[in-house]
Design a protein around this nucleic acid. Structure first.
Lengths: 137, 137
DNA sequence: CCAAGTTTCGGAAACGGTTGTCATTATAGT
DNA sequence: ACTATAATGACAACCGTTTCCGAAACTTGG
């Protein structure tokens, strides 16, 4: 029993490759992009498996997920604790924003109106300093 | 020229029916649901037209749109001013939350990190008092 | 009222990211 | 190693949404 105490399943080659790739940078990337990158470096992995692995990781709280207006999901290895994200809409550069303030606010608002079991979605999108300097709108 | 000063197109029967239906309640409803409801009451309107109309209305700021985790869009006639929503995840009962506080907070955070042109997504989901009383989790 | 020019309609097909299917393959406890 | 069990992955299905495009309905000038 060297494994299986972390809420994830088995340590397969594919999952190790996905998590390793996620460790390399802290940019948000789509499942399809991660899949491409793995194939490009000669790792034979199926798109389905990438999706499933990311699902598992996000369920386990190991990665953060955001949804673009277009509907696609972006994934990133997760910092500790609850937080939100300030994401550049051009280059996906991301800053983590500590969350407690907003969450307390949300809980208070909800209680005032008799709502329980509150969840929230909060993401900030903007143009980072570099992209703004390059004239990207 | 009795029309055309509101950013919407012509006042067609279909668009009037959609906006009339939106006026009836302030629940969030999906395009498909609105379409069903119109057909059910004998209004012959195409699903495409419902989607287009809702697109136009939301571009014009006449309706609010939220996106469920599943990816579908829900529409509701719009209150004045910037605000967010506290939505019951079971019955879609909705409370409008005035937005200024959060928006100022967002702008300040963004500026601290050199980001400009900030946009935000914020929705609160919870279980309303009635649904909680009926034991819905 | 008629004709020409626009706008809108709406059924059907396309789209795109995601999830399901299921036979094959790999993993890990014994 | 052996075996039960979980994971893989090519492919197809899904599902809300958008696009296409010919037909129908307005609008406007004459």
């Amino acid at each position: 029993m060297a494994e299986e105490a972390h809420g994830l399943g088995r340590h397969t080659r594919q999952r190790l490759q996905v998590t390793a790739l996620l460790e390399e940078t802290d940019e948000f990337r789509s499942a399809q992009r991660l899949h491409e990158m793995l194939r490009a470096r000669g790792v034979p992995v199926g798109l389905t498996t990438v999706y499933r692995t990311l699902q598992i990781l996000s369920d386990a709280g190991e990665v953060d997920v955001i949804r673009l207006p277009s509907g696609e999901h972006l994934y990133r290895r997760c910092g500790a604790g609850r937080h939100h994200h300030l994401v550049c809409r051009h280059c996906a550069r991301t800053v983590e924003i500590p969350g407690p303030g907003v969450e307390q606010w949300a809980r208070r608002i909800a209680r005032q109106h008799g709502y329980v079991d509150v969840a929230q979605t909060l993401e900030l999108f903007g143009t980072c300093a570099d992209c703004a300097a390059q004239g990207r709108t």
